[in-house]
Simulated scan of single mutants.
Amino acid sequence: MNKDFIDALNQLAHERNLDKEQLLASFEEALEQAYERNVEPGKQIEVHVDPESGEIDVLVVKRVVETVEDPGLEMSLEEARELDPTVEVGMEMELPVDPERFTRIAVQTTKQVITQKIREAERALVFNEYKDRAGDVITAVVSRTDNKRNVFVDLGRGEAIMPPKEQIPGERYMVGMRLKVFVMKVELGNRGPSILVSRAAPELLEYLMRQEIPEIADDTVEIKAVAREAGQRSKVAVVSRNPNVDPIGACIGHRGARIQAVTGELQRERVDIILWDPSPREFIRNALSPAKVGTIEVNSETGEAKVTVSNDQLSLAIGKGGQNVRLAAKLTGFKIDLVASEHISDLDAALQAAASRVHDAPIATDDAKRAAFDALFSAAPSAAEEGDAAERVGDEA
């Protein structure tokens, strides 16, 4: 052992970003195990390495007893006092061992143990680095892929896995590609830390919006809910805490610049900005946009909502492959049942006629308007009754 060894140890600690003292302690432990297994079996060994000079001391530790039962671990008082006259029964003696007795097998054992210790130290370091990062968004670099379509990304000090279900469909991942990922879970298993990241998580969309939209970053505009089908379409419900700030306009930006900056990171995924409403009925109505729907019956206990839609708006409300209504259900938390009605278009005309007749005496509040509108739908009159329905709305106003 010499100064060159200490220099090599320091370089290893620097390259692997490990603690030098911990690495030295691991080396001493590896030497102890090698001696106990291959050089001095059945004895208690202690190894001390000088951190400056690299000199090594190998010691056999024995307990002083009156009657020796285990020669490997004990020595008699008489024998001990030949080395140290002040020793007493029960004390421990440290006896030097010649390091030259280190065999080739012991060297190989030391190498295996120290390699394992270094791996364990690196795994513990990675886990400690990222155990509190779950829920964060990190910039990563694609390092490799496997035949199961898993993508592995380099986080800097550790490697994370992104399984197919957490990838954006259609997005190609090339080695060296930089991308933002959401850290979903960090666990420590038998094979080291396991870090799961995602590009499909709704939290990634929320993070990007916070980065690109100042009103969201300073909490002037609040994101209430996010529903996402990665790579295809998302709906984001927002509300403004400042009556002078339009939450939808703030998110979209001038000529859509802000929302385009967000979608550019997500393979041009379509993002619908929805106005959140404290009323479940109106929130569901907004969530189903761009479709225009009629009456909405909400059962808060069962979490179900029955929505009446005209035939010409039904396909728009459902969306391609049921995507629009599916995202609206995720966004609002209600199970939405769409019911087609051929009377809605006629009732729209009746409502417009009623509104024109009460132009001089407008309905006072939005709630009154909604009540009148719902009354027309629930009545579901025939074409002959529409004029009377409109007339009643005018009289009630």
Rank of each mutant, 00 (worst) to 15 (best):
M1H: 12
K3I: 13
A8V: 05
E15L: 11
R16Y: 05
N17R: 15
E21T: 15
Q22Y: 11
L24W: 13
E28P: 00
A30K: 10
Q33W: 04
Q33M: 13
E36M: 15
E36D: 09
E40Y: 08
Q44V: 13
E46N: 08
V58F: 11
V61Y: 10
V61P: 09
V65I: 12
E69Q: 14
E69V: 12
E88R: 14
D98N: 15
F102M: 13
T109I: 09
K111A: 14
V113D: 01
I114R: 02
Q116I: 05
R119L: 05
A121E: 10
N128Q: 12
E129N: 00
D136C: 08
V137S: 11
F152K: 08
G158P: 06
R172A: 06
V175I: 14
V175Q: 10
G176A: 06
L179S: 02
K185A: 00
V186T: 09
L188D: 11
P193H: 08
P193K: 06
S198H: 07
A201Y: 04
L205Y: 05
E215I: 04
E215A: 01
T220N: 01
T220C: 03
V221E: 00
I223R: 00
V226P: 02
E229G: 02
S234N: 01
V236R: 02
S240P: 07
V245G: 11
I248N: 06
A250L: 10
I252V: 15
G253N: 07
G256D: 08
R258I: 00
I259S: 07
I259L: 11
W276R: 03
R281E: 13
I284R: 01
N286C: 02
N286K: 04
A291Q: 01
V293W: 01
I296N: 08
V298L: 07
V298W: 04
A305K: 11
K306P: 01
A317D: 05
K320P: 03
G321F: 07
Q323G: 06
R326K: 13
L327W: 00
K330I: 00
K330Q: 14
L331Q: 05
T332D: 04
K335S: 14
L338R: 05
H343I: 03
A349C: 04
L351Q: 13
A353T: 12
A354Q: 10
V358T: 14
V358K: 14
D360W: 11
I363F: 08
A364D: 12
A368G: 15
K369A: 10
F373S: 12
L376P: 05
A379T: 14
A380Y: 00
P381E: 04
S382E: 12
E385H: 04
G387L: 06
E391W: 02
E391P: 01
E391K: 12
G394K: 00
A397E: 06
